[in-house]
Design a protein around this nucleic acid. Structure first.
Length: 264
DNA sequence: AAGAGGGCCAACCGCCGACCA
DNA sequence: CTGGTCGGCGGTTGGCCCTCT
């Protein structure tokens, strides 16, 4: 991307403090935001007198100063949920964090990178060893999936192919989709979904796997990674987010139990 | 006791989409 | 319509701390 034109880096103007925040800076930021509210981070950075860029202020507030932040002591339930959500969403930490009240995307990301990724990897290595070498069941990968690489794109919509709209409408809204938007060619429509809805659809209802599947492309609807369009990523060409092999992997309860045991 | 190595975590960086003038 | 700005995201990094040798 050509960075000589377009926006200028918002943090490069004038003198800007970097590195760890001091107690004084925290106090200033906290006081300013509790008085004036969140948002307009550049303005906050300038008017509060902090020599920090807006981004830095935002990050500090969201990850540390904001009321209701839980720190440390991730419970077993939370860990369980993180693993499930990661399996479902990949590295979409903000979405995962959204389902864990008081937890931040950064904390979850760090926790995953330092703890869970190893546990999961260990577990999959173990289970791989237990399988006969070279005789992996057909159509089923015996090893852990490669990491899902995603881009920093927001993802609040899913694509509903016409043939699925009725069923989805029924499942979601008890009969009506509240916010459908048709795109240009009217072949798909979008719905804003919160994660609770998504999870209630695919995690709690394992029968979703048995819903009709038609015309699933080779790429599995772009589920894994290299498809930038997150609407496609959660394409409901698949039964609620799930690719075939993903569904096979979805027997995660056992995984979790084993991980929990190995990690304790 | 001291140095090395590894783990954890806060903060930064670069990119993107949304929004607005 | 275009370009600039902002807010938000995931990836990466650097420093502190703990453990091991």
């Amino acid at each position: 991307m050509n960075r000589s034109m377009g926006r200028s880096p918002s943090c490069s103007k004038g003198e800007v403090n970097k590195g760890a925040w001091s107690v004084t800076e925290d106090k200033i930021l906290h006081t300013y935001i509790t008085t004036h509210g969140e948002g307009k981070w550049r303005e906050i950075a300038e008017r509060s007198g902090l020599k920090r860029c807006g981004k830095s202020c935002r990050l500090r507030w969201l990850n540390y100063l904001r009321p209701g932040i839980k720190r440390g002591n991730i419970t077993h339930d939370e860990e369980d949920l993180i693993i499930r959500l990661h399996k479902l969403l990949g590295n979409r930490w903000s979405l995962i964090a959204g389902r864990l009240p008081g937890r931040t995307d950064t904390e979850i990301k760090n926790y995953w990178n330092s703890n869970l990724s190893k546990k999961v990897q260990q577990y999959h290595n173990k289970s791989q060893e237990n399988e006969q070498p070279g005789t992996a069941p057909s159509g089923k990968k015996s090893q852990a999936r490669p990491p899902i690489r995603t881009k920093a794109t927001r993802c609040t919509k899913v694509v509903l192919p016409p043939q699925q709209q009725g069923q989805v409408a029924k499942d979601l809204d008890g009969g009506s989709l509240s916010k459908l938007h048709e795109d240009g060619n009217s072949s798909v429509c979008f719905k804003d979904l919160d994660m609770g809805t998504l999870l209630s659809l695919d995690i709690q209802d394992s029968n979703a796997a048995n819903l009709g599947r038609n015309g699933i492309p080779e790429h599995g609807g772009g589920v894994y990674g290299d498809d930038d369009d997150c609407s496609a990523w959660i394409s409901l060409n698949l039964p609620f987010l799930l690719e075939d092999k993903m569904l096979e992997n979805w027997g995660i309860s056992d995984d979790l139990q084993a991980i929990g045991e190995s990690g304790q």
